[in-house]
Amino acid sequence: ACPVAPSSRSSQEVWESFSQCFTPAVKEVVEFAKSIPGFQSLEQHDQVMLLKSGTFQVLMVRFCSLFDPKERTVTFLNGQTYSLASLRALGMGCLLDAMFDFSEKLGQLGLEPDEMALFMAVVLVSADRSGIVEVAAVEQLQENLIKALRSLMSHRRPDDSTLFPKLLLRLPDLRTLNIQHSDKLLAFRID
């Protein structure tokens, strides 16, 4: 639920409320990560590193459901719908364009909620490895999660062997989104 400002509020206030909306969303990703079987048996340092490099990408997957690529609108959890044009005024134009494209491609795969959740777990443990201490343990967890996702999807759609590879092709898209945007968007933190 991230209400974007009515015109009466300054852009700083808009950014403040947007940044504050991010905090609960990030905390939810941390709780989600802790629920991934095997994640908490990783070194705590590695858990933190994966979260730091993967949370933005997981959020991008989660936010996809807010985007309507056909109508080019975003509907926040509080029900407020905004057109791409009105959101562009906040200066997030290029991220929004990228998000619309990404959510269109992901949406076309028609994943079930449990497949989407398993995909987000794969996204998190596939995040950047720099700074990871026990790479082998992370790689093993990633392999297990990919195996689980593949068997869930092939069990459900035995005659469609293209869907899983198409899904994995979204991982590089997410990495690009992360590289292009997570260190550009500014946030305000109030201490």
């Binding site: 905090t23 990030v26 730091k52 933005f56 945007h181 997570s182 946030a187 933190r189 109030i190």
Partner: peptide, 25 residues
């Protein structure tokens, strides 16, 4: 008084994660 700090979203995310793990130590 409220002090505002401007940072990248990546740093904002890192800060929240660090705080969460520190709190659950």
């Amino acid at each position: 008084p409220k002090t505002h700090r401007v940072m990248t979203l990546a740093d904002h995310i890192s800060h929240i994660i660090t705080q969460d793990f520190a709190r659950n130590q």
